[in-house]
């Protein structure tokens, strides 16, 4: 009995170890590679042999890559602020006010979040050319709204629906207008949800590739994923793996740290969408 139990525990922990190694190893290996240069790069090393920062200095020394990081930060931040601003007021209306067609509207918003991006690409391309924001950060900020806005509205609506009615009624009895109710009563209670949705929307905007690839045409306006995706050497044989791995580590480490800090909130936010039992 006890040996069987021991065997079970061992098997369980073996499974745990497999899961952890499988999840972490590719990132670990990218870090190891990013610190190797020259011939060291072309030997398979399971453990770091050297700590050579030259891949990092080479990547950050390229003006365009630093510019791409700035572009990505600006685009993702503006997109999130924009989406949250529109979503807070909209989700108040969707969660708190009864009106005809509310259910239909919610389903439409969910449907938009499922749109394949390629289906709007041609139309957006025309729109962006028409407004004259092609090859500027605003092209991305506009187009990213299609996936950040429905998502933030959806999550904030489910969150706001769970807030107690009493506090709102008390405010209304005191003569508060809906605008006051949102800004003075709900906003202070909402901030955990805002942090979560904001972070998830930020990650979505930071990682987006299709729109950023299509709506930029020069190296200085690229976002980080496009810059990394198109980083290449003179030929197929000369792919600069060291710098690519260094660039990958640079853009991933801040995300990983953010995710680890906010992991509880992120898990809650990810599952708040459809899975409510």
């Amino acid at each position: 009995m006890t040996t069987q139990k021991l065997l079970k525990t061992t098997a369980f922990y073996a499974l745990v170890v497999v899961i952890v190694v499988f999840s972490v190893f590719p990132f670990y290996y990218a870090i190891v590679t990013s610190f190797s240069t020259g011939t060291e790069l072309f030997k398979v090393n399971y453990f770091p042999r050297s700590f050579d920062w030259s891949n990092y200095t080479r990547v950050l020394g390229q003006r365009n890559f630093a510019q791409s990081i700035l572009n990505s930060v600006f685009i993702a931040t503006t997109t999130v602020v924009f989406a949250l601003f529109l979503a807070v007021t909209a989700s108040y209306a969707l969660a708190r006010v009864r009106f005809r067609g509310r259910g239909l509207l919610l389903m439409t918003i969910l449907a938009v979040s499922m749109f394949p991006q390629i289906a709007v690409l041609a139309g957006l391309f025309e729109l962006i050319r028409f407004i004259g924001i092609f090859n500027t950060p605003w092209a991305m900020i506009l187009s990213y709204t299609i996936f950040t806005l429905p998502f933030t509205v959806w999550v904030l609506t489910t969150f706001m629906r769970d807030l107690p009615v009493e506090i709102e009624e008390a405010a209304i009895v005191d003569g508060a207008t809906p605008w006051i109710v949102i800004t003075r009563v709900f906003l202070p209670l909402l901030w955990p949800a805002l942090v979560t949705t904001g972070l998830l929307a930020f990650i979505g905007a930071w990682n987006e590739f299709l729109f950023a690839l299509t709506f930029t045409s020069s190296e200085t306006t690229r976002t980080v994923p496009v810059a990394i995706g198109l980083l290449s050497g003179a030929s197929q044989q000369e792919i600069p793996w060291g710098p690519i791995m260094a660039a990958s580590v640079i853009v991933t480490v801040p995300l990983v740290i953010l995710v680890l800090i906010f992991q509880r909130k992120i898990v809650a936010g990810l599952t708040a969408g459809g899975v409510k039992g």
Partner: peptide
């Protein structure tokens, strides 16, 4: 925390 890492890494990366 470990299984969140693959999710957080951008697809391109």
């Amino acid at each position: 925390a470990a299984i969140l890492i693959p999710w957080a890494i951008p697809t391109i990366v």
